[in-house]
Design a protein around this nucleic acid. Structure first.
Lengths: 338, 338
DNA sequence: TTTAGCACTCTTTTTTATTGTTTGCTAATT
DNA sequence: AATTAGCAAACAATAAAAAAGAGTGCTAAA
């Protein structure tokens, strides 16, 4: 465990570095609250913190920079969660009051709000399909060979898709489909819509392959579709660590990899808010960045996961404060409405 | 009119500059096809071309760079449209054979194909709402207070939206709506769905405001929604003109302005393919870029507009070749299917 | 009409010098 | 024993100077 003064020094280094992106010198932190010592004393503490692995030097004559271990300690032990201003609270409240018709839009709204307030890039994704159950399925004939399928899930999500057929479909067939699918699938997980179901319907129930096959295939597609939503992609470019084109390009390329982003949002969820600092990220490409993931929900309805991507010197305190506030706000709003 | 040799020189300068992004010296173009003269002779021609305004010098001791006038002359008179390789043809054909269920996906597919082949950024938008007419409208009750509306247009586009109500809706009401909307609106332009219609339905036809108002409002919203689709945003960053972070940021910010992009895609359409070079763009922010717009259609169905954004030294020949090829291919594919 | 030749211009790259920041250590002080 | 003043050493960052390179425009000859 770290002595109190060392903690203060580490905290000062982390917070100043988050603020300025410049290595922090012994001079810069002397005389701060609780650190009324000469720079030489601070230097001694810094030397020890370095030996312990909490901070490091870019080169001999530079100030110190937090190491991954340093950030981790800061996040776990030193971080204070009140870094949210009144204006920000006001802004968030206003944005979250926007009326939305679809649950998915709440996720987008939340993720854009977080991006705007924190100035980091956010990525979001809906709830994973295996936690969702079917509440209702509707088929609607759009034209003789084109049908629309709408699936309502228990968390209020709507998934629709258009299905084309090679032969004409009758209104009668559509009604049978409506009855049968609802009867069989209501309350079941949406992942039940798959190949075995197709097989069952065709082989056991004697439905026409030409009718069932396109339906199942297309529905399966929308269900599995993980649509990643991005917000504020260019925002990070304002930060000094992205002032090299090399780095900027690398970052934009990472964002372009939807699969990678989906992966990232789907890894390990001990808590609702998780912090991954630099090398702690499982994905190789993200080892230079920090990610904070936020599984958000209203009541017990899972609404998906939002990830904030930023530099390692991300303002963790701010990000976490904002998330917690939004989470609270979302649930309050919901209660009011009922 | 330019003498033949001057044309050759101008062409060489434009093409070399497009390729290398470096000012073109007299040395570099001597001995090219049709230019078997000494560098001094070329220099004389270049001096004259400069006086006429076709090319310019970044500074005294640099080579020449095409001016906007130079590019314009090149595009109008010199450009050869066979700049498309066999591999590219193969790649395009394969991609365009992907089966899609929605017309909108064709636009996305086309725009991503163009971006991939040309390495420029593309922006696309659906057909403007005032050229579309209603083919069919469907209302489907999803739950007691939630309804889905689906509009089919004559160009095969599907627009759907979810509508929430403050009071319960009966299946009966939905059927009336279905009958009435179709009866009244089939064959009409979709822009007919607006405030006056709401007024008519409520005041003359005595429908409940609580029912009609949310419907019209929400439908109006989806109709007016111009969803701009972006492809290959980070691609331009590979080009040397974007090697300054300043410029790169500027570019990304322009792309973020959806309204600007929509504007750009909606300005003046003399032909299906239009080229705007630098200052020729109406929008101030685009004066440093060149835009090629491409109104694409299958038969006489308008499918929307795709814009390619690149530097002024864009490879116009390639871009135009690709567009023409895709246009042909789309229409051929369509014929085959019928 | 074309071209060789060369001085001149201006950018780009390389080198050298200068300034500034911060550390680590030693010795003095509290 | 803990703290601090003081100072040399280590680099980075900046500025200034020098050298190299690429092209042009013009003149005079072919």
């Amino acid at each position: 465990m770290l002595e109190e003064r060392k903690k203060r020094v580490l905290q000062a280094i982390v917070e100043l570095y988050i603020k300025t992106a410049e290595p922090v010198s012994s001079n810069a932190i002397m005389n701060l609250e609780g650190l009324e010592y000469s720079s030489a004393t601070i230097r001694n503490e810094m030397a020890e913190l370095e030996k312990m692995g909490y901070i490091e030097k870019p080169h001999t004559s530079a100030g110190r920079v937090p190491s991954a271990k340093g950030y981790r300690f800061y996040v776990d032990e030193l971080l204070q969660e009140d870094k949210i201003t009144l204006e920000e609270i006001k802004y968030i409240s206003e944005k979250l009051e926007t009326k939305v018709n679809e649950m998915e839009e709440i996720t987008k709204l939340t993720s854009s709000t977080i991006s705007e307030i924190t100035h980091y890039t956010t990525v979001s994704i809906g709830p994973s399909s295996d936690v969702q159950t079917i509440e209702n399925i509707r088929f609607v004939l759009l034209s003789t060979r084109m049908m629309m399928a709408v699936i309502l899930t228990d968390n209020g999500l709507v998934k629709e898709t258009i299905i084309k057929f090679d032969e004409d479909i009758t209104e009668n067939q559509v009604q049978t489909l409506n009855y049968m699918f609802n009867n069989k699938l209501k309350g079941e997980p949406i992942t039940k819509i798959d190949k075995p179901l197709e097989k069952y319907l065709v082989e056991e129930m004697q439905y026409s392959v030409n009718l069932i096959k396109p339906i199942i295939e297309q529905m399966k597609k929308v269900i599995e579709e993980e649509s990643v939503h991005l917000e504020g992609a260019s925002r990070l470019l304002e930060l000094p660590e992205f002032s090299s084109l090399e780095v900027a390009k690398n970052f934009l390329n990472i964002l372009d990899e939807k699969d990678l982003m989906a992966d990232m949002l789907n890894t390990g969820f001990a808590k609702d808010i998780n912090v991954y600092i630099g090398e702690e990220n499982e994905q190789e490409a993200l080892k230079d960045y920090s990610i904070v993931t936020f599984k958000h929900r209203i009541g017990n309805k899972d609404l998906g996961t939002i990830g904030i991507i930023g530099p390692k010197r991300m303002d963790y305190a701010k990000v976490i404060s904002v998330m917690k506030y939004i989470s609270k706000k979302l649930n309050d709003n919901d209660k009011e409405e009922n």
